[in-house]
Amino acid sequence: MLELRNIRKVYNAGSITELKLFDDFSLTVDDGEFVSVIGSNGSGKTSLLNIICGSIPIESGDVLVGGESIAKEKDFVRCRRIGRVYQNPSLGTSPNLTMLENLSLADNKGKSFGLRFGINKKRIDYYTEQLASLGLGLEDKLNVKMGALSGGQRQAVALLMATMTPLEFLILDEHTAALDPKTAEVIMQLTDRVVREKGLTAIMVTHNLRYAVEYGTRLIMMDKGSIAFDKRGAEKAALTTDEVLAKFNTLSIE
């Protein structure tokens, strides 16, 4: 279980551009939930993810996993249990390393990065099989530099890398936003499959209302640093894109 308790987050504190985003923000995500988070620009969606991952500091409040506070853990320490996929496909992989080297790095997460040979040849079959399951024709490009692949291909590999080792939380930060509609659909279906197969707890920020409605087990709409709308279970399943859009518009007009 992931808990955000009484989070207070102020940007540019003390300056003329001070912006109080979260004042007393709390959110609990149960194990196995797949939460879609929507909301207009500046509503705090990405800040929410950054606070969970420890990428930005908070003024007060607490972040807990399974009842234990992780607020004092640095970002890279929290990453032991968190996998994250970003909007920008180039953030999830290392462009000058080959795909095989990238996958080998991801495969070694949680273990020591010492002086052993970086690529484990015995794992190549496994990588090939995983890549083939993406259906993007990547399985014969293991020795191609990551930077030479398309955004969609890189994002698919980034997703594979983020979920390769055991993890508790998958954080998806508008991870389909930079992709063309067809590739976005492929990545979204892939995400859904990975989350189901691995039984992950996932939080997905998206601007695509249809994805938010179609995928996931819970839908949260953020507005100006608070939760305007929170539906789960059967209520969530019954939601339609039109309903959500209507609700979204009432908030945006204010």
Binding site: D75, F76, V77, C79, R80, G83, R84, Y86, S90, L91, G92, T93, S94, P95, N96, L97, E101, S104, L105, A106, N108, K109, G110, S112, F113, G114, L115, R116, F117, G118, A162
Partner: peptide, 21 residues
């Protein structure tokens, strides 16, 4: 080596290194 790959990754994409914990 594993360490060498990580060193190359840090100049390439620091975010990835953080993501690898």
């Amino acid at each position: 080596t594993k360490s060498g790959l990580l060193l190359r990754a840090v100049g390439d994409n620091q975010t990835l290194v953080t993501a690898l914990a």
